[in-house]
Design a protein around this nucleic acid. Structure first.
Lengths: 209, 209
DNA sequence: CAATTTTTGAAACGAGTATTTCAAAAACCG
DNA sequence: CGGTTTTTGAAATACTCGTTTCAAAAATTG
Protein backbone atom coordinates (compact mmCIF):
# COMPACT_ATOMS: atom_id res chain seq x y z
CA UNK A 1 0.00 0.00 0.00
CA UNK A 2 1.43 3.33 -1.04
CA UNK A 3 1.30 6.09 1.52
CA UNK A 4 0.98 9.65 0.26
CA UNK A 5 2.31 12.02 2.87
CA UNK A 6 1.36 14.88 0.60
CA UNK A 7 -1.95 14.46 -1.24
CA UNK A 8 -1.51 13.81 -4.92
CA UNK A 9 -1.95 17.00 -7.00
CA UNK A 10 -4.99 17.62 -9.10
CA UNK A 11 -4.51 16.58 -12.75
CA UNK A 12 -2.92 13.71 -14.59
CA UNK A 13 0.19 12.48 -12.79
CA UNK A 14 3.57 12.90 -14.41
CA UNK A 15 5.01 9.89 -16.11
CA UNK A 16 8.67 10.80 -15.57
CA UNK A 17 10.99 10.79 -12.60
CA UNK A 18 11.19 14.46 -11.67
CA UNK A 19 14.00 13.89 -9.21
CA UNK A 20 16.20 12.32 -11.85
CA UNK A 21 15.30 14.34 -14.92
CA UNK A 22 17.98 17.01 -14.53
CA UNK A 23 20.56 14.33 -13.86
CA UNK A 24 19.75 12.67 -17.18
CA UNK A 25 19.78 15.95 -19.06
CA UNK A 26 23.11 16.69 -17.44
CA UNK A 27 24.61 13.54 -18.90
CA UNK A 28 23.53 14.56 -22.40
CA UNK A 29 24.83 18.12 -22.15
CA UNK A 30 27.98 16.93 -20.44
CA UNK A 31 28.98 14.40 -23.04
CA UNK A 32 27.75 16.12 -26.21
CA UNK A 33 28.02 19.83 -25.48
CA UNK A 34 25.21 22.34 -25.89
CA UNK A 35 24.70 22.48 -29.64
CA UNK A 36 24.97 18.75 -30.19
CA UNK A 37 22.44 18.06 -27.45
CA UNK A 38 19.14 18.30 -29.33
CA UNK A 39 15.86 18.83 -27.54
CA UNK A 40 14.75 15.42 -28.82
CA UNK A 41 17.77 13.76 -27.26
CA UNK A 42 17.37 15.64 -24.01
CA UNK A 43 13.68 14.87 -23.62
CA UNK A 44 14.05 11.20 -24.41
CA UNK A 45 16.92 10.98 -21.92
CA UNK A 46 14.72 12.62 -19.30
CA UNK A 47 11.74 10.51 -20.40
CA UNK A 48 9.86 13.77 -20.44
CA UNK A 49 7.58 14.99 -23.26
CA UNK A 50 8.71 18.06 -25.10
CA UNK A 51 5.59 19.97 -24.09
CA UNK A 52 6.34 19.32 -20.44
CA UNK A 53 9.95 20.39 -20.82
CA UNK A 54 8.88 23.66 -22.43
CA UNK A 55 6.27 24.33 -19.75
CA UNK A 56 8.80 23.65 -16.99
CA UNK A 57 11.90 25.36 -18.33
CA UNK A 58 10.66 27.77 -20.99
CA UNK A 59 13.16 26.78 -23.64
CA UNK A 60 16.40 24.90 -24.21
CA UNK A 61 18.43 27.71 -22.69
CA UNK A 62 16.35 27.54 -19.51
CA UNK A 63 16.85 23.79 -19.25
CA UNK A 64 20.57 24.21 -19.71
CA UNK A 65 20.83 26.83 -16.98
CA UNK A 66 18.84 24.58 -14.66
CA UNK A 67 21.24 21.76 -15.49
CA UNK A 68 24.23 24.00 -14.78
CA UNK A 69 22.77 24.85 -11.40
CA UNK A 70 22.10 21.19 -10.67
CA UNK A 71 25.64 20.35 -11.71
CA UNK A 72 27.13 22.99 -9.44
CA UNK A 73 25.11 21.76 -6.48
CA UNK A 74 25.82 18.08 -6.95
CA UNK A 75 29.39 18.17 -8.26
CA UNK A 76 31.14 21.45 -7.60
CA UNK A 77 30.13 22.01 -4.02
CA UNK A 78 31.88 18.76 -3.19
CA UNK A 79 35.12 20.11 -4.62
CA UNK A 80 34.71 23.57 -3.13
CA UNK A 81 34.21 22.13 0.32
CA UNK A 82 37.68 20.64 0.29
CA UNK A 83 38.83 24.18 1.02
CA UNK A 84 36.83 24.36 4.25
CA UNK A 85 37.94 21.16 5.93
CA UNK A 86 39.64 22.74 8.93
CA UNK A 87 42.96 21.16 7.97
CA UNK A 88 46.03 23.18 7.11
CA UNK A 89 46.50 24.83 3.74
CA UNK A 90 48.72 22.25 2.09
CA UNK A 91 46.32 19.46 2.99
CA UNK A 92 43.40 21.45 1.65
CA UNK A 93 45.18 22.17 -1.61
CA UNK A 94 45.95 18.51 -2.06
CA UNK A 95 42.33 17.63 -1.42
CA UNK A 96 41.14 20.34 -3.77
CA UNK A 97 43.24 19.24 -6.73
CA UNK A 98 42.44 15.60 -6.08
CA UNK A 99 38.78 16.55 -6.12
CA UNK A 100 39.33 18.29 -9.43
CA UNK A 101 40.78 15.11 -10.89
CA UNK A 102 37.90 13.02 -9.59
CA UNK A 103 35.40 15.49 -11.00
CA UNK A 104 36.88 15.48 -14.46
CA UNK A 105 37.43 11.74 -14.76
CA UNK A 106 34.25 10.47 -13.10
CA UNK A 107 31.85 8.33 -15.06
CA UNK A 108 32.60 6.56 -18.30
CA UNK A 109 32.50 9.01 -21.19
CA UNK A 110 31.34 12.20 -19.50
CA UNK A 111 34.57 13.97 -18.63
CA UNK A 112 35.82 17.43 -17.97
CA UNK A 113 33.65 20.06 -16.32
CA UNK A 114 30.25 21.21 -17.53
CA UNK A 115 31.10 24.78 -16.64
CA UNK A 116 34.69 25.19 -17.75
CA UNK A 117 34.16 23.12 -20.90
CA UNK A 118 30.53 23.23 -22.08
CA UNK A 119 29.25 26.47 -20.59
CA UNK A 120 32.51 28.22 -21.43
CA UNK A 121 32.04 27.25 -25.05
CA UNK A 122 28.47 28.42 -25.59
CA UNK A 123 29.29 31.65 -23.79
CA UNK A 124 30.97 32.79 -26.99
CA UNK A 125 27.69 33.64 -28.74
CA UNK A 126 25.12 33.96 -25.93
CA UNK A 127 25.14 36.89 -23.55
CA UNK A 128 23.14 35.13 -20.84
CA UNK A 129 25.50 32.18 -20.84
CA UNK A 130 28.46 34.54 -20.87
CA UNK A 131 27.26 36.19 -17.67
CA UNK A 132 26.68 32.84 -16.04
CA UNK A 133 30.14 31.64 -16.99
CA UNK A 134 31.81 34.78 -15.70
CA UNK A 135 29.96 34.51 -12.39
CA UNK A 136 30.99 30.88 -11.96
CA UNK A 137 34.59 31.53 -12.92
CA UNK A 138 34.88 34.49 -10.56
CA UNK A 139 33.28 32.50 -7.75
CA UNK A 140 35.99 29.86 -7.85
CA UNK A 141 38.76 32.43 -7.81
CA UNK A 142 37.17 34.22 -4.88
CA UNK A 143 36.73 31.01 -2.94
CA UNK A 144 40.38 30.13 -3.49
CA UNK A 145 41.55 33.60 -2.54
CA UNK A 146 39.49 33.54 0.65
CA UNK A 147 41.10 30.23 1.61
CA UNK A 148 44.58 31.61 1.04
CA UNK A 149 43.86 34.78 2.99
CA UNK A 150 42.51 32.72 5.87
CA UNK A 151 45.92 31.09 6.01
CA UNK A 152 47.69 34.44 6.18
CA UNK A 153 48.81 34.50 2.55
CA UNK A 154 50.26 37.97 1.83
CA UNK A 155 48.23 40.40 -0.22
CA UNK A 156 51.28 42.04 -1.73
CA UNK A 157 54.68 40.93 -2.96
CA UNK A 158 55.54 38.94 -6.06
CA UNK A 159 52.68 36.49 -5.67
CA UNK A 160 49.80 38.08 -3.76
CA UNK A 161 46.77 36.07 -2.75
CA UNK A 162 44.59 37.13 -5.68
CA UNK A 163 47.28 36.14 -8.19
CA UNK A 164 47.88 32.84 -6.41
CA UNK A 165 44.15 32.16 -6.49
CA UNK A 166 44.02 32.86 -10.22
CA UNK A 167 46.94 30.54 -10.76
CA UNK A 168 45.29 27.80 -8.71
CA UNK A 169 42.09 28.16 -10.74
CA UNK A 170 44.06 28.05 -13.97
CA UNK A 171 45.81 24.86 -12.90
CA UNK A 172 42.50 23.31 -11.93
CA UNK A 173 40.88 24.17 -15.26
CA UNK A 174 43.87 22.94 -17.20
CA UNK A 175 43.71 19.61 -15.37
CA UNK A 176 39.98 19.40 -15.96
CA UNK A 177 40.49 19.94 -19.66
CA UNK A 178 42.97 17.10 -19.78
CA UNK A 179 40.37 14.92 -18.12
CA UNK A 180 38.02 15.69 -21.00
CA UNK A 181 40.63 14.51 -23.50
CA UNK A 182 40.46 11.08 -21.91
CA UNK A 183 43.42 11.07 -19.54
CA UNK A 184 42.75 8.80 -16.58
CA UNK A 185 42.67 9.71 -12.92
CA UNK A 186 45.93 7.81 -12.51
CA UNK A 187 47.51 10.01 -15.18
CA UNK A 188 46.30 13.19 -13.54
CA UNK A 189 46.83 12.53 -9.83
CA UNK A 190 50.58 13.20 -10.00
CA UNK A 191 49.86 16.45 -11.80
CA UNK A 192 47.33 17.39 -9.14
CA UNK A 193 49.80 16.70 -6.35
CA UNK A 194 52.47 18.78 -8.06
CA UNK A 195 49.96 21.56 -8.60
CA UNK A 196 49.22 21.70 -4.89
CA UNK A 197 52.91 21.66 -4.02
CA UNK A 198 53.86 24.26 -6.61
CA UNK A 199 51.20 26.65 -5.44
CA UNK A 200 52.00 26.16 -1.78
CA UNK A 201 55.65 27.05 -2.31
CA UNK A 202 54.73 30.40 -3.81
CA UNK A 203 53.69 31.65 -0.38
CA UNK A 204 57.32 31.81 0.72
CA UNK A 205 58.13 34.42 -1.85
CA UNK A 206 59.98 37.38 -0.38
CA UNK A 207 58.07 40.72 -0.41
CA UNK A 208 60.12 42.32 -3.17
CA UNK A 209 63.48 41.86 -4.78
CA UNK B 1 52.14 47.42 -65.03
CA UNK B 2 51.71 44.11 -63.30
CA UNK B 3 54.44 41.55 -63.78
CA UNK B 4 53.42 37.90 -63.69
CA UNK B 5 56.39 35.80 -62.70
CA UNK B 6 54.23 32.76 -63.05
CA UNK B 7 51.84 32.73 -66.00
CA UNK B 8 48.22 33.13 -65.02
CA UNK B 9 46.41 29.76 -64.83
CA UNK B 10 43.91 28.67 -67.41
CA UNK B 11 40.30 29.47 -66.49
CA UNK B 12 38.48 32.35 -64.88
CA UNK B 13 40.61 34.02 -62.22
CA UNK B 14 39.58 33.83 -58.61
CA UNK B 15 37.85 36.82 -57.16
CA UNK B 16 39.01 36.36 -53.58
CA UNK B 17 42.29 36.85 -51.77
CA UNK B 18 43.56 33.30 -51.40
CA UNK B 19 46.38 34.35 -49.10
CA UNK B 20 43.97 35.89 -46.62
CA UNK B 21 40.99 33.55 -46.84
CA UNK B 22 42.07 31.22 -44.05
CA UNK B 23 42.85 34.16 -41.84
CA UNK B 24 39.30 35.46 -42.23
CA UNK B 25 37.76 32.05 -41.64
CA UNK B 26 39.95 31.77 -38.54
CA UNK B 27 38.45 34.91 -37.10
CA UNK B 28 34.95 33.51 -37.52
CA UNK B 29 35.72 30.12 -35.99
CA UNK B 30 37.78 31.73 -33.25
CA UNK B 31 35.14 34.14 -32.05
CA UNK B 32 32.00 32.05 -32.60
CA UNK B 33 33.12 28.47 -32.16
CA UNK B 34 32.53 25.66 -34.64
CA UNK B 35 28.76 25.18 -34.51
CA UNK B 36 27.93 28.87 -34.46
CA UNK B 37 30.16 29.53 -37.46
CA UNK B 38 27.83 28.81 -40.39
CA UNK B 39 29.12 28.12 -43.87
CA UNK B 40 27.36 31.28 -45.02
CA UNK B 41 29.20 33.36 -42.45
CA UNK B 42 32.52 31.72 -43.21
CA UNK B 43 32.24 32.15 -46.97
CA UNK B 44 31.17 35.77 -46.77
CA UNK B 45 34.06 36.49 -44.38
CA UNK B 46 36.45 34.88 -46.84
CA UNK B 47 34.68 36.58 -49.77
CA UNK B 48 34.66 33.16 -51.33
CA UNK B 49 31.66 31.50 -53.02
CA UNK B 50 30.31 28.40 -51.35
CA UNK B 51 30.99 26.30 -54.43
CA UNK B 52 34.65 27.31 -54.35
CA UNK B 53 34.93 26.57 -50.65
CA UNK B 54 33.52 23.09 -51.18
CA UNK B 55 35.81 22.40 -54.11
CA UNK B 56 38.85 23.55 -52.15
CA UNK B 57 38.18 22.04 -48.73
CA UNK B 58 35.61 19.32 -49.34
CA UNK B 59 33.29 20.31 -46.51
CA UNK B 60 33.05 22.43 -43.40
CA UNK B 61 35.14 19.95 -41.43
CA UNK B 62 37.91 20.20 -43.99
CA UNK B 63 37.90 23.98 -43.85
CA UNK B 64 38.06 23.88 -40.09
CA UNK B 65 41.03 21.52 -40.08
CA UNK B 66 42.80 23.76 -42.59
CA UNK B 67 42.09 26.72 -40.31
CA UNK B 68 43.45 24.83 -37.31
CA UNK B 69 46.64 24.13 -39.23
CA UNK B 70 46.90 27.76 -40.29
CA UNK B 71 46.34 28.83 -36.71
CA UNK B 72 49.04 26.54 -35.40
CA UNK B 73 51.54 27.82 -37.95
CA UNK B 74 50.84 31.51 -37.47
CA UNK B 75 50.10 31.64 -33.74
CA UNK B 76 51.32 28.59 -31.87
CA UNK B 77 54.75 28.24 -33.39
CA UNK B 78 55.53 31.68 -32.04
CA UNK B 79 54.74 30.52 -28.52
CA UNK B 80 56.47 27.17 -28.91
CA UNK B 81 59.66 28.84 -30.06
CA UNK B 82 60.00 30.64 -26.75
CA UNK B 83 61.24 27.28 -25.46
CA UNK B 84 64.13 27.20 -27.92
CA UNK B 85 65.66 30.61 -27.34
CA UNK B 86 69.02 29.46 -26.02
CA UNK B 87 68.40 31.23 -22.73
CA UNK B 88 68.20 29.46 -19.42
CA UNK B 89 65.13 27.59 -18.28
CA UNK B 90 63.60 30.24 -16.06
CA UNK B 91 63.83 32.84 -18.77
CA UNK B 92 62.27 30.50 -21.27
CA UNK B 93 59.41 29.67 -18.93
CA UNK B 94 58.72 33.35 -18.41
CA UNK B 95 58.74 33.93 -22.15
CA UNK B 96 56.50 30.93 -22.72
CA UNK B 97 53.81 31.99 -20.28
CA UNK B 98 53.96 35.58 -21.45
CA UNK B 99 53.47 34.29 -24.98
CA UNK B 100 50.47 32.34 -23.77
CA UNK B 101 48.95 35.52 -22.36
CA UNK B 102 49.59 37.43 -25.57
CA UNK B 103 48.06 34.63 -27.61
CA UNK B 104 44.87 34.48 -25.60
CA UNK B 105 44.31 38.22 -25.31
CA UNK B 106 45.35 39.33 -28.81
CA UNK B 107 42.84 41.08 -31.01
CA UNK B 108 39.61 42.64 -29.87
CA UNK B 109 36.98 39.96 -29.34
CA UNK B 110 38.78 36.84 -30.50
CA UNK B 111 40.28 35.43 -27.34
CA UNK B 112 41.45 32.18 -25.93
CA UNK B 113 42.99 29.49 -28.11
CA UNK B 114 41.38 27.93 -31.17
CA UNK B 115 42.73 24.54 -30.18
CA UNK B 116 42.23 24.39 -26.45
CA UNK B 117 38.86 26.14 -26.63
CA UNK B 118 37.15 25.59 -29.99
CA UNK B 119 38.74 22.38 -31.24
CA UNK B 120 38.58 20.88 -27.77
CA UNK B 121 34.86 21.50 -27.71
CA UNK B 122 33.86 19.97 -31.04
CA UNK B 123 36.07 16.98 -30.27
CA UNK B 124 33.25 15.77 -28.02
CA UNK B 125 31.13 14.50 -30.91
CA UNK B 126 33.53 14.15 -33.85
CA UNK B 127 36.15 11.42 -33.99
CA UNK B 128 38.35 13.20 -36.53
CA UNK B 129 38.45 16.35 -34.43
CA UNK B 130 39.09 14.27 -31.33
CA UNK B 131 42.21 12.77 -32.90
CA UNK B 132 43.42 16.18 -34.00
CA UNK B 133 42.88 17.63 -30.54
CA UNK B 134 44.71 14.76 -28.86
CA UNK B 135 47.66 15.11 -31.21
CA UNK B 136 47.90 18.85 -30.55
CA UNK B 137 47.57 18.47 -26.81
CA UNK B 138 50.19 15.75 -26.68
CA UNK B 139 52.54 17.79 -28.86
CA UNK B 140 52.60 20.66 -26.39
CA UNK B 141 53.31 18.38 -23.45
CA UNK B 142 56.12 16.70 -25.34
CA UNK B 143 57.66 19.99 -26.34
CA UNK B 144 57.59 21.17 -22.74
CA UNK B 145 59.01 17.92 -21.45
CA UNK B 146 61.85 18.04 -23.99
CA UNK B 147 62.70 21.55 -22.81
CA UNK B 148 62.80 20.45 -19.18
CA UNK B 149 64.92 17.41 -19.96
CA UNK B 150 67.36 19.56 -21.90
CA UNK B 151 67.87 21.50 -18.70
CA UNK B 152 68.57 18.37 -16.72
CA UNK B 153 65.20 18.12 -15.05
CA UNK B 154 65.04 14.77 -13.23
CA UNK B 155 62.93 11.98 -14.70
CA UNK B 156 62.06 10.54 -11.32
CA UNK B 157 61.29 11.86 -7.87
CA UNK B 158 58.18 13.64 -6.70
CA UNK B 159 57.89 15.85 -9.78
CA UNK B 160 59.48 14.13 -12.78
CA UNK B 161 59.82 15.94 -16.09
CA UNK B 162 56.71 14.45 -17.67
CA UNK B 163 54.55 15.48 -14.70
CA UNK B 164 56.07 18.95 -14.66
CA UNK B 165 55.38 19.26 -18.38
CA UNK B 166 51.74 18.26 -17.87
CA UNK B 167 51.44 20.79 -15.09
CA UNK B 168 52.94 23.52 -17.27
CA UNK B 169 50.51 22.71 -20.06
CA UNK B 170 47.61 22.74 -17.61
CA UNK B 171 48.62 26.16 -16.31
CA UNK B 172 48.94 27.46 -19.86
CA UNK B 173 45.51 26.18 -20.86
CA UNK B 174 43.93 27.53 -17.71
CA UNK B 175 45.40 30.96 -18.40
CA UNK B 176 44.21 30.77 -22.00
CA UNK B 177 40.70 29.97 -20.88
CA UNK B 178 40.69 33.01 -18.65
CA UNK B 179 41.72 35.08 -21.63
CA UNK B 180 38.62 33.87 -23.43
CA UNK B 181 36.44 35.09 -20.56
CA UNK B 182 37.68 38.59 -21.26
CA UNK B 183 40.44 39.09 -18.73
CA UNK B 184 43.04 41.50 -20.03
CA UNK B 185 46.72 40.90 -20.62
CA UNK B 186 47.43 43.12 -17.62
CA UNK B 187 45.26 40.88 -15.48
CA UNK B 188 46.99 37.73 -16.68
CA UNK B 189 50.65 38.73 -16.80
CA UNK B 190 51.12 38.41 -13.03
CA UNK B 191 49.53 34.97 -13.18
CA UNK B 192 51.86 34.01 -16.02
CA UNK B 193 54.91 35.14 -14.08
CA UNK B 194 53.83 33.21 -11.02
CA UNK B 195 53.19 30.18 -13.19
CA UNK B 196 56.75 30.26 -14.49
CA UNK B 197 58.14 30.71 -10.99
CA UNK B 198 55.98 28.01 -9.45
CA UNK B 199 56.96 25.48 -12.06
CA UNK B 200 60.64 26.33 -11.89
CA UNK B 201 60.75 25.74 -8.16
CA UNK B 202 59.45 22.22 -8.54
CA UNK B 203 62.78 21.15 -9.99
CA UNK B 204 64.44 21.44 -6.60
CA UNK B 205 62.31 18.68 -5.17
CA UNK B 206 64.31 16.03 -3.40
CA UNK B 207 64.35 12.57 -5.02
CA UNK B 208 62.12 10.87 -2.45
CA UNK B 209 60.98 11.45 1.09
C1' DC C 1 36.91 34.20 -83.18
C1' DA C 2 36.04 29.55 -81.40
C1' DA C 3 37.25 26.17 -78.00
C1' DT C 4 38.67 25.21 -73.43
C1' DT C 5 39.11 25.71 -68.58
C1' DT C 6 38.10 27.38 -64.20
C1' DT C 7 35.42 30.25 -61.13
C1' DT C 8 31.19 32.28 -59.88
C1' DG C 9 26.56 33.06 -58.04
C1' DA C 10 22.22 31.64 -57.26
C1' DA C 11 18.93 28.35 -56.82
C1' DA C 12 17.38 24.00 -54.96
C1' DC C 13 17.60 20.08 -51.89
C1' DG C 14 17.10 17.43 -47.90
C1' DA C 15 17.75 16.93 -43.34
C1' DG C 16 17.57 18.59 -38.78
C1' DT C 17 16.40 22.16 -35.51
C1' DA C 18 13.66 24.64 -31.69
C1' DT C 19 9.20 25.72 -30.67
C1' DT C 20 3.98 25.82 -30.63
C1' DT C 21 -0.45 23.84 -30.69
C1' DC C 22 -4.07 20.93 -29.21
C1' DA C 23 -7.01 17.08 -28.65
C1' DA C 24 -6.73 12.86 -26.02
C1' DA C 25 -5.45 10.73 -21.63
C1' DA C 26 -5.38 10.22 -16.74
C1' DA C 27 -5.79 11.53 -12.55
C1' DC C 28 -8.92 14.04 -8.60
C1' DC C 29 -13.24 16.36 -6.66
C1' DG C 30 -18.13 16.61 -5.65
C1' DC D 1 -20.80 9.71 -13.11
C1' DG D 2 -19.81 14.50 -14.63
C1' DG D 3 -16.61 18.31 -14.23
C1' DT D 4 -12.02 19.97 -13.53
C1' DT D 5 -7.16 20.01 -13.87
C1' DT D 6 -2.87 18.69 -15.44
C1' DT D 7 0.04 15.89 -18.32
C1' DT D 8 0.83 13.59 -22.52
C1' DG D 9 2.06 12.57 -27.31
C1' DA D 10 1.93 13.65 -31.79
C1' DA D 11 1.39 16.64 -35.43
C1' DA D 12 2.46 21.04 -37.44
C1' DT D 13 5.24 25.27 -37.97
C1' DA D 14 8.90 27.87 -39.27
C1' DC D 15 13.54 28.21 -39.77
C1' DT D 16 18.47 27.26 -40.35
C1' DC D 17 21.92 24.45 -41.83
C1' DG D 18 25.34 21.86 -44.85
C1' DT D 19 25.66 20.42 -49.35
C1' DT D 20 24.87 19.81 -54.44
C1' DT D 21 23.91 21.38 -58.92
C1' DC D 22 24.56 23.98 -62.99
C1' DA D 23 24.30 27.55 -66.33
C1' DA D 24 26.57 31.98 -66.84
C1' DA D 25 30.93 34.54 -66.47
C1' DA D 26 35.72 35.38 -67.26
C1' DA D 27 39.87 34.21 -68.29
C1' DT D 28 43.56 31.57 -71.58
C1' DT D 29 44.80 28.84 -75.79
C1' DG D 30 44.97 27.83 -80.68
Amino acid sequence: MTVHLQPRPRGRPRGFDAANALEQALRVFWTRGYDQASVDLLCSAMEMPRATMYSLFGDKDGLFLAVVSHYAQTRLSFVAETLSSGNDLLQDLHAFFKGVVQLSTAGRDPAGCLISCVLADVAATNAEFRDERNRRFDALEQRLEARLLRDGWPTSGSCPANVAASLAAAMARGIVQRGRTGQSADDLYPVAISAAEALYRMRDTLPEK
